[in-house]
Amino acid sequence: MELSGTFELENVTVEEVWLALSDPVLLAQAAPGCEFAEEVDDPDDVDFDALRAAAADREDPPTLPEADPEEVAERAIEEGDHYAAVLGVKIGSVNPTFEAVGTITKREFPEMHASGEGASSDSSFEVSSGMKLTETDNGVQVDWWAESDVFGRVAQMGQRVMNPVANRLVNRFFSQIADRLTDVGEDSPNVRDRIKDLI
């Protein structure tokens, strides 16, 4: 399944949006049903149970606009990074859970690509996605795309609802991102000062 979309933000600069989008905490919070997302060294050898336990009691640090831009910059995602996550999707009673690993495949201002795969006991998915930022008259335009493939039981049993569900999830993710970035935009003068020196 292939999807794409675009959203516009006002009162922000491309740099601000780029920084916000580099925050793994913000991205994880936007991802539907994401229980946690942890950076890992080896994407092929992930102990999800251990990560789950460690994440259980931890609290997320603040994200922009509240966060200290330097802290965000420090934890910013970089090309080649791998992240492990557990995604517990919930749409009504439909609630498959996937253990997933994602990789940042490209991170070159103003474009970012990522790919990921996840599995449950009898199903799996592969997704690749990207965002591109362009400056507009009073803000930033974000163009996004996503390609997903689903395998196994979920695809076999759920064909009637698969596409709309995947559609919902992807759109939900990007609209969450848009909402967060709008918050950044609203607090923008503040943020801008703080990150002026960083970028």
Partner: peptide, 14 residues
């Protein structure tokens, strides 16, 4: 008759 078919299909797991 909504819940059980969804569970049967593996899409729901309460």
């Amino acid at each position: 008759h909504s819940l059980l078919p969804t569970i049967k299909s593996g899409l729901a797991s309460p």
